[in-house]
Nucleic acid binder design. Structure first.
Lengths: 245, 245
DNA sequence: AAGTGGTCTAGACCACTCT
DNA sequence: GAGTGGTCTAGACCACTTG
């Protein structure tokens, strides 16, 4: 129980609380405190680093802003779990707007070597093995979204040959549970296109039908890209709201 | 020079800094410090209200988050000007992607009584008079965006019959300068649709061509809706990026 | 040099959660 | 009641901007 001081060497041009935040973030990312677990109390962290309480609070506030931790009054400070999921629905409005989670059906799963564009986004070597999925999402029995996913095999190998009935409707909680991949941030690029014959068939729409197209890159806490996905759905069901300030 | 104390009665269930922020926001909204002007120094505000410096700083931080003021190290605290403009371009990518401001051409201006949907969004009585505009925006000589705008006449009367050559390419700075309407927040709802024959003609595209459609409501500092606008452009030029955390 | 906001300290006290 | 985070104080000192 040696309570040795952890002094943070002041980075040039960085305030002390910013340096502290950097150091703490590194320990979170390294897994010293796993997702969902509690950090030491702010008072303990402060004395451990030889700074005033207010300074440590500023550092922790930064990590909250950056999405690494969350604080609960009276309980403690916790490492955030990954994103919960169902987020694609934020872009589409189908008639049954009851907030229900779409049912997911895996149409195809194969081990392939990554196409150039995919390996570049995933940040892996050209032609490295990836898991490719075709996935249909249904609401009220109707097929609504068609997805293509690419997952780097080194992280997702256990999911390459299991029973497909073990796949959940929501992927991110499943990724966390079964392969310890926690999606921390996602970047969605929205565009417009027309459905290919194959895509259209799966969605029960005519080929060439206008579709909204969401290209997602998802990242874990270390900043590594762990998923590339393209989602397509009827353009007429698309809507999204942005607030500008 | 009476330095009387301005005590803020603590609202039940509100922290002192939150109450202070509320009180200061009311004075900003009321125009006690006009847009672009400086607030008193934080030290003066603190002693004026009989609170510690740190408490006043927390209050001012809140107003920064909410977009009412901005602080510049070494200079002071200033009431924010309205949004600058050119923001529609965030949704489209045309070949000449040089960040140039699109040239604006007013095609039509008329005084009409507000349609039901418009008067509802503007929060004015049914059939109240509004200024309706059709506006084309061009980049590199090519027509790219077609806009319909509705402005409540009580605020924009001076713009109802002036020389149209006095209209700028960017509306919001002009609104601030000529009718003292400062747009503080805007809400954009994105969807996909097809161009009507008239819309298509203005954009040099075939009728029924797919288009991205942005429906904007713009608000001033008091929270009043001061503009309703629909912007349409070629769906293939549309793109938008969202980060999820 | 004077005035501004930004950082940091070392406390006290309050509000919430759990047992 | 013990432990947590949230608020508030009354200072000191630093960094930036302007005359």
């Amino acid at each position: 129980m040696n309570s040795s001081l952890r002094l943070v060497t002041a980075e040039p041009g960085l305030s002390r609380y910013a340096s502290l935040a950097q150091a703490l973030r590194a320990r979170v990312v390294a897994g010293e405190w796993p997702p969902g677990s509690a950090l030491p109390a702010e008072s303990q962290l402060a004395s451990e680093h030889g700074v005033a309480l207010g300074t440590m609070r500023r550092a922790l506030e930064l990590l909250v802003e950056q999405g690494y931790i969350e604080r609960i009054h009276g309980k403690g400070t916790f490492v955030r779990q990954g994103l919960t999921g169902a987020t694609m629905l934020r872009f589409f409005r189908f008639d049954s707007g009851t907030g229900e989670v779409p049912v997911s059906r895996i149409l195809q799963r194969s081990r392939v070597s990554a196409p150039a564009a995919v390996s570049r986004t995933l940040g892996i070597g050209a032609g490295e093995p990836v898991l490719r999925l075709h996935r249909l999402r249904l609401m009220g029995g109707q097929p609504r979204l068609f997805e293509e996913l690419w997952l780097p095999l080194d992280l997702f190998a256990p999911l390459a040959e299991d029973d497909l009935t073990e796949w959940d409707d929501l992927l991110y909680p499943m990724f966390a549970r079964r392969v310890q991949v926690h999606v921390h941030r996602a970047l969605d690029d929205i565009g417009f296109a027309q459905l290919s014959a194959t895509q259209a068939r799966h969605l029960g729409l005519p080929a060439g039908h206008p579709c909204a197209q969401v290209q997602r890159s998802a990242f874990d806490r270390t900043g590594r890209c762990v998923e590339v996905r393209t989602t397509r759905g009827d353009a007429h069901a698309f809507h999204y709201t942005v607030t500008i300030t």
